[in-house]
């Protein structure tokens, strides 16, 4: 019969603690190490932001499975859906532009969508497992905790996006430094706003099941209405309205704009594929789009902070 080795660390070890304690006594630690906890200051709050942020990174690093699984969906969209639908869509596409290239910016946005919101879900887990309490009773301002969490989620999600960005060449998107920098910046903004949105929800929703259900309910409509998979012009009126309400639209469009600016396509094709967001015929400038997403993110962050400042 084959024997299986059980790694020692998997055994919830009943420890050698009694002996440890004895040794400690022998070493005579009766001399107390004085720790003076300083008065609250902005530096203390920033230190709190930093440690909450770093915890997200540590947990992301130890959870490789999550990193892999959350990339599965964008991969499916880009390569399976992109290739499959691409045959059909190629009739409507100008020569030289693949369907994969067209949907690449939208799918790139998707690659941070899930990770961002799931990072926020960790607040619900933290509440469930009590760790949130450890953070909430600390002598730091609540904004520091919330900001640290949002920055952590945004960093992790952007990192995920960057992995996906490395595949740009497969979708015939050029590796131009300016393009890559622009896209990383836009991903960071998107990830931050989405995490802020998730944290805001997590302040109110205390059960993980409810949080997950609501996420599922919101994420796909947000994605499908953002123009990630189709151009935003010539849509039926109702769909036009819905796409303009979806905040994700205002980040997918700048990302697509950036990608198309680095492709050599005719002005006519550009107009057909990356028409920009219009409000009743008025073209929304890229700067305004980006600013709107930033403002939404900051407002959600403010709401999240206000929610977490409440005491029982």
């Amino acid at each position: 019969m084959a024997t299986k080795d059980i790694p020692a660390k998997d055994i919830p070890a009943e420890d050698t603690s009694a002996q440890d304690a004895l040794e400690a006594q022998e070493r005579d630690l009766t001399e107390l190490i004085r720790v003076a906890v300083p008065e609250r200051s902005i530096r203390a709050d920033l230190r709190a932001v930093s440690i909450v942020w770093r915890r997200e990174l540590i947990r992301f690093r130890t959870d490789r499975l999550r990193a892999v699984t959350s990339l599965v969906q964008p991969f499916l969209f880009l390569f399976v859906l992109g290739n499959g639908l691409g045959r059909l869509a190629s009739h409507g596409l100008p020569a030289g532009v693949d369907f994969e290239t067209f949907i690449y910016p939208g799918v790139l946005a998707m690659s941070v969508l899930f990770t961002s919101i799931f990072s926020a879900a960790s607040i619900v887990w933290d509440r469930e497992f009590g760790f949130l309490r450890e953070m909430l009773v600390a002598p730091v301002r609540r904004w520091a905790i919330v900001v640290g969490k949002c920055l952590g989620g945004a960093t992790v999600a952007t990192f995920q996006g960057i992995i996906f960005l490395a595949l740009a060449g497969v979708a015939h998107v050029p590796y131009s430094p300016t393009l890559l920098l622009t896209l990383v910046g836009e991903l960071l903004l998107l990830a931050f706003t989405l995490t802020a949105f998730g944290v805001m929800m997590a302040a109110r929703i205390k059960q993980i099941q409810a949080f997950m259900a609501l996420t599922q309910l919101l994420v796909l409509p947000l994605f499908f209405l953002s123009g990630a998979l189709y151009p935003l012009n010539g849509l039926p009126a109702w769909l036009t309205v819905l796409t303009r309400i979806d905040p994700l639209t205002y980040i997918v469009d700048p990302m697509r704009h950036a990608v198309f600016a680095h492709l050599s396509v005719s002005p006519l094709a550009l107009k057909a594929l990356s028409p920009g967001v219009t409000w009743d015929g008025w073209l929304v400038p890229i700067g305004l789009s980006v600013a709107m997403v930033a403002v939404i993110g900051v407002v959600m962050l403010a709401i999240a902070i206000a929610e977490f400042r409440k005491t029982e």
């Binding site: 440890d20 720790v35 440690i51 600390a138 002598p139």
Partner: peptide, 26 residues
């Protein structure tokens, strides 16, 4: 970090409290 324990005091204090509860080796 949340409680602003001075960085210089952290290492010795960590050892002290962990040894007190017999978890230093773990």
């Amino acid at each position: 970090d949340l409680y602003g324990v001075p960085k210089a005091a952290f290492a010795p204090r960590l050892r002290q409290v962990l040894e007190m509860v017999g978890l230093w080796d773990r």
